[in-house]
């Protein structure tokens, strides 16, 4: 176990190096001189000169890379090119609102999808099953944008059940007043694809030999599903949640834009709009690192659900 974790940590090093290289290649090499990028966006030549000096633009590429690596490990990406706010400060203050939306979304969507998909898998092959699958396919085909536009208009403007947009300083008010509509939207949209996916996980398991054994033992059909099948299907479901987990930091960017939530997602969109490279670079590198550690954690947690996993 310890050896396994150590080996995985060891393997993370080249991946982090790769992420740094990729970002450097993209922003410094392809992106080029900030003077060109910022032409027309910042009119103050002194500020541009400052940025160029800071990044070592006139030095060779290896030196620029060294500057970037130093930025990564000292958590100091300097200041935003457009607002002059410190990048580290931007990251810290924007994470909260994003997680306020996305953690409830992840929990509610996953649990609803598991419950519904096991019910649909139980009645597999019936008309109900086929109807639900078709509804899901159609629901998945409508753009997220359309859902947001219509829901915001319907529940915000027309019915007035929820605030159209906004955010406050108090966590309680955010969660109880501003967040419900975005959360509901994200759950509504996320449910259909997950339902389809989890149903296929359950069906895969139902066709396994051990299910036939359970039936041959006289296990009632309901406990075949809830005990034998569910326990096995949790393995791919956990994998799927593990893959989705890092996404919660930026996943809600559209919602944040529409509902005016000051989160990380909206910050990135703004940064892309304003070519605010330091913010994008910092978010990308740090989220990649977080992702790697979450993946490691998920792999270790596998052991809990799948006894076949060994840490050799």
């Amino acid at each position: 176990m310890t050896a396994y974790v150590l080996r995985r940590l060891w393997q993370i090093i080249p991946t982090i190096a790769g992420v740094i290289l990729l970002i450097f290649f993209l922003f410094n090499w392809v992106g080029g001189d900030p003077a060109m990028v910022l032409a027309g966006k910042i009119s103050n030549p002194e500020q541009i000169a400052n940025i160029r000096r800071q990044l070592g633009i006139d030095e060779p590429y290896w030196y620029q890379l060294w500057v970037f690596v130093k930025q990564v490990f000292t958590f100091d990406f300097g200041r935003s090119w457009s607002t002059n706010e410190e990048v580290s400060r931007i990251l810290i203050t924007r994470v909260g609102p994003t997680l306020t939306i996305m953690i409830p979304v992840l929990i509610i969507t996953t649990s609803l999808a598991v419950v519904f998909s096991i019910m649909v898998a139980y009645v597999r092959g019936t008309l109900t099953d086929r109807m639900i699958m078709i509804v899901c396919t159609v629901a998945m085909s409508v753009s997220f944008l359309v859902y947001i536009i219509v829901f915001q208009w319907l529940f915000g403007f027309i019915l007035g059940w929820f605030p159209v947009q906004g955010w406050s300083e108090s966590f309680g008010k955010n969660l109880g007043y501003y967040a419900p509509l975005p959360i509901m939207l994200a759950v509504f949209v996320g449910l259909a694809p997950e339902l389809r996916l989890y149903r296929s996980f359950f069906l895969d398991e139902i066709n396994q030999d051990y299910v036939r054994t359970a039936r041959a033992k006289g296990v009632p059909e309901k406990s075949v599903m809830l005990k034998h099948v569910l326990r096995n299907a949790m393995i791919p479901i956990l994998t799927n949640v593990g893959i989705a987990l890092p996404g919660i930091f930026v996943g809600s960017f559209l919602l944040e834009v529409f509902f005016s939530i000051p989160g990380l997602g909206r910050e990135i969109i703004t940064a892309v709009n304003r070519s605010d490279f330091p913010v994008i670079k910092a978010v990308t590198v740090y989220l990649a690192v977080i992702t790697m550690f979450i993946n490691l954690l998920v792999d270790v947690m596998y052991k809990v659900v799948d006894p076949r996993v060994s840490f050799k």
């Binding site: 030999d209 051990y210 359970a214 039936r215 296990v219 326990r231 096995n232």
Partner: peptide, 19 residues
């Protein structure tokens, strides 16, 4: 099933529940 009449199958590996 399993009480009066029970069964054993060809592939014991896949016929047992792995978890």
């Amino acid at each position: 099933r399993g009480k009066d009449i029970s069964v054993i199958f060809q592939e014991p590996m896949t016929s047992l529940n792995p978890v």
